[in-house]
Simulated scan of single mutants.
Amino acid sequence: MATPDFIKAVRATAGHQLLHLPGITAVVFDDEGRVLLVRRSDNGRWTLCGGIPEPGEQPGVAAVREVYEETAVECVAERVVLVAAEPQPVVYPNGDECQYMNITFRCRATGGEARVNDDESTEVGWFPLDTLPPLTEAEVFRIKQALTDEPTWFATMPAH
């Protein structure tokens, strides 16, 4: 995934040490109830759209921006469905370590044609919920939470 310039500036002095960063995920549905996924160019896995908010950028605005940047799909963020610290740090191929505090939004597509719109993905597609490609357990949970009318999910007990 492309590293934002402000993270590159921090890395210039922090090196590869663990950074705690905000992250957003967008679970985007179309009018047919399909979910929008991208195939990452770095590891070939299908995933939900997401990224890091820019300094001062509101998380919902970042979700909408990331979806458009990655897929050319226009959407609106409807609600927060999940707030969670990722349980394990991500270690990137260059040695950088990051642990994300993720805010997941349910979004509704409003326009645009789904296509690869940057170098972060190799494919983009709409998937019916009963024919999803392999996803992580966390991504499946985010989709399930986005489909419910439950309040925003967050952990109330420390992870063990």
Rank of each mutant, 00 (worst) to 15 (best):
G125R: 09
T110E: 14
D96K: 04
L37N: 06
T13K: 14
G23K: 02
F29K: 01
L147R: 15
A146W: 07
L129C: 02
L82W: 02
E74H: 14
G15M: 07
I7H: 01
H16M: 13
A109L: 10
T156D: 07
Y92F: 15
I52N: 03
T13L: 11
D149E: 14
T25S: 12
D30E: 03
A26T: 06
A26M: 07
D42Q: 10
E86Y: 04
D96V: 13
G56I: 13
T152E: 13
P133Y: 11
V64W: 03
W46D: 12
G44S: 11
V10Q: 08
E120S: 14
C75W: 07
D96W: 14
D5K: 13
Q99H: 05
V91H: 05
P59E: 13
D118H: 09
A114M: 05
W153K: 01
G56S: 10
K144E: 15
F29C: 00
S41G: 12
E69N: 08
V38P: 00
A85Y: 00
E123G: 02
M101P: 00
L21Y: 02
V61Y: 09
P93N: 07
T71Y: 03
L147E: 10
V73Q: 05
T47S: 15
Y100N: 01
V80G: 02
R40L: 08
L82M: 10
G60S: 15
G111D: 11
V76P: 00
E54L: 15
R40H: 11
V76F: 09
P59Q: 13
T71D: 06
E139W: 02
V140D: 09
H160D: 12
V64G: 03
V10H: 04
V116P: 05
V64A: 13
L19C: 03
A85V: 09
G56P: 07
V61P: 00
G44V: 08
T110G: 04
F141H: 12
V28G: 04
F154N: 03
D119S: 11
N102K: 11
N102P: 00
A155V: 09
D96N: 11
P151W: 06
L19T: 04
P158T: 06
F127T: 02
D5N: 09
R115G: 10
V81P: 00
L147K: 08
F154P: 00
Q99N: 12
R11E: 14
I7P: 00
G51Y: 09
D31G: 01
P4H: 02
P53G: 06
A72Y: 11
E66Q: 14
N94F: 05
C98D: 09
V91G: 01
P22C: 02
